[in-house]
């Protein structure tokens, strides 16, 4: 299959993830959107790696997966703390940065 297909899919994944982050008010869904964005990036890495015959892309993909795991751990911990503090995970109500 041509590399373009993978790249298109990767872009679509990234867009869906972005839309999730920007539009959903639930923090959990927003975290899932970030996960999708990262995976879109991963797919593009792998597609170029295959196209160019270079394993560096795979290495990057692994690093990103590790990073995504760490991000999920930290993100979920913040989420739990947020819920404890305000009994909600709605992002509209978490506007502490305003002050």
């Amino acid at each position: 299959m041509p590399t373009t297909y993978y790249l298109v899919l990767s872009f679509v994944l990234f867009l869906i993830g972005t839309a999730g982050v920007l539009l959903r008010r639930n923090a959990l869904i927003a975290l899932m959107g970030i996960e999708l964005q990262l995976n879109g990036g991963n797919l593009a890495m792998l597609a170029f790696s295959r196209e160019l015959g270079d394993l560096k892309g795979h290495v990057f993909a692994f690093i990103i997966i590790a990073l995504a795991a760490a991000e999920a751990a930290v993100g979920l911990a913040i989420l739990v703390a947020l819920f404890r503090g305000r009994q909600t995970v709605n992002l509209d109500e978490a506007t502490l940065m305003k002050r």
Partner: peptide, 14 residues
Amino acid sequence: LQGGDVQRYMAVFA
């Protein structure tokens, strides 16, 4: 822009 809403910051960023 400085509304304190994370998603708005994200949108500007995007």
